[in-house]
Design a protein around this nucleic acid. Sequence first.
DNA 1: TTGCTGACCATGATTTCCCATGATATTCAA
DNA 2: TTGAATATCATGGGAAATCATGGTCAGCAA
Lengths: 160, 160
Amino acid sequence: MLKFFSSSATNKVDAKGRVSIPAPFRKVLQGEGSSVLVLVPEITGRPIIEGFGEAHFNKLAASLEEMNPYTPEYDALANMVFGEAHQLPLDDTGRIVLPQEFRDLTGITDLAHFVGRANTFQIWNPETYNAGRAEMRETAKANVDKLPWAGKRGADRGAP
Amino acid sequence: MLKFFSSSATNKVDAKGRVSIPAPFRKVLQGEGSSVLVLVPEITGRPIIEGFGEAHFNKLAASLEEMNPYTPEYDALANMVFGEAHQLPLDDTGRIVLPQEFRDLTGITDLAHFVGRANTFQIWNPETYNAGRAEMRETAKANVDKLPWAGKRGADRGAP
DNA sequence: TTGCTGACCATGATTTCCCATGATATTCAA
DNA sequence: TTGAATATCATGGGAAATCATGGTCAGCAA
């Protein structure tokens, strides 16, 4: 069973706001033994939706619990994350209804672009994504050395 | 059990996009106790696919988690690596379906060239590979001394 | 009513699964 | 060491399941 959200897909959003969650993503949720999906606006305010399963949602809740309540930080995070999150059940064909506020936030009308990001995934307006893609490629290229790819950063790869 | 990806092979891509993963490569995956393969476009954007097993994929995820999220670097790496990675299960005859986007990227139509690279391997359009091979030989020849062959202990492996 | 939601059914296009085959490779015994 | 018996490998094809998508209809609220 798949462990990480990976790959991308652009799916249609129908007149009722329904979108198919890409099959590989559903398999990750399934692996968590869950068929609900959590969507939250990207916390820094960019026009992107962040998505994940219950497992990750629980982790977020756990981190919050470690914070001191009745502080502005706790307040802000609790409200922005949990206050704006939607827990959406997948229907029997693997679709969710994308809440109107998320369509507004992202500018999504009839197409939604899904991007896997390991423990989470994102939903973008395809146009926004394409507009930023070239720059992301450049930034990624300039930062390869942050990942244990083939350089010496890949410390424990077996060879001395 | 084999530990590194080595050797090369050129295999057919059938009408359904299926390719046999070279048997020696399968043995490396088997050694990791896994039968899924991860493919990612080469990060600098050349028309090459990078492949490896779940073990290496986990390491990539782990390094990401150590980075500061919501930075352009994190974003770019997450989207370009995980967003474009495919986790592909091998079928019972050791084949995968090479995703269309990878066939497009590399220009692969009916033949795929596999090249072992120790901890990862690459998939090339055979023509692209052949076209660049002579130059790679020259570059390798000019840099033999960078490898710590027997008798050359402590050779300089390049400083940060 | 009018409009929205959710449950259910329908469908074409993949994609996956399963079985089959010829070409090497490998094993093992004489 | 040679040759026959046995695996392994790369490849092909058809049937069955999955996927993304669309539509209908009943319930419920405004």
